[in-house]
Each structure stands twice: as C-alpha cells, then as structure tokens.
C-alpha cells in the first residue's frame, strides 16, 4: 500500500501539514518496501483550485491512501473518483501517523470543508 501525507519537511519525522492543498511536500510511503519519496507540491502557490491540483498529484503518484488533517470537498471528489481512502491525521509526526494507519488506529475522514476561497 502506498500512503500519501502532506508534510512540512522532507523527512519521516516531519509534522503533518494542516493544509492539504498548500502543503510544501507530499510524502509517499510504500508499506511493502518501507521507502518514502517526497514530491514537491506544485499547487502550493496557485491562486485557486490548489486542492484539486494537489489531489491530482496524489492520484498520479499512485497512492492508495491519504492521511490529512482536513480536506476540501473538491479535493475529496478527485480522491474518491480515484478510489483513494482518506484518513484523519492524529497528533504526532508523519511516521507516527503511518504506524497508526498500519495498526488500523486511524479513523476515516468524511466531513470535508467547502473550501476557503477567500472566506473563513
């Protein structure tokens, strides 16, 4: 299984970025090889639709699951079309969250926000 996580720094001990669409990097962790790959988030500075583009990056990199703090409805639509499971991140590092997912301790994320689009 390939797990995607928005991270602030390019290492396993990074914290999970609260923003999905505007995170610095995505970490892709392969549970069979135990290898992690970091991909820069090309959507980071886009004025709009960052969540959609970021979700495209997740799908294009072949992830099966995403761990995120929160997620917008548009990004969720893309991920659901790609049949990528979405889990809610808990406190702790990216590594902690991966371990928690493998141990089946993460709940799925299903309440998506409408997107900020300049509003709060």
């Amino acid at each position: 299984m390939k797990i995607a996580i928005p991270v602030i720094d390019k290492n396993l001990n990074s914290s999970v970025d609260a923003s999905f669409g505007r995170t610095n990097y995505f970490m892709f962790y392969d549970t069979s090889t135990k290898e992690s790959v970091f991909v820069e988030n090309s959507a980071k500075n886009n004025p709009g639709g960052a969540g959609i583009k970021a979700a495209q990056t997740i799908a294009d990199n072949g992830a099966n699951a995403l761990i995120a703090v929160r997620l917008g409805q548009n990004a969720a639509n893309v991920l659901q079309n790609a049949e990528i499971k979405i889990y809610k991140a808990t406190d702790g590092s990216a590594k902690d969250n991966i371990d928690a997912l493998i141990a089946n301790n993460l709940s799925t994320l299903s309440d998506f926000h409408k997107g900020f689009h300049g509003r709060n």
């Binding site: 639709g49 960052a50 639509n77």
Partner: peptide, 11 residues
C-alpha cells in the same frame, strides 16, 4: 485547476 483527470476521465 478547474479540471482533474482520474482513470483517463476528466472531472
């Protein structure tokens, strides 16, 4: 970013 593509199908 008004378009995405999954399984060769644009959204």
């Amino acid at each position: 970013n008004a378009l995405a593509i999954i399984n060769n199908k644009p959204i």
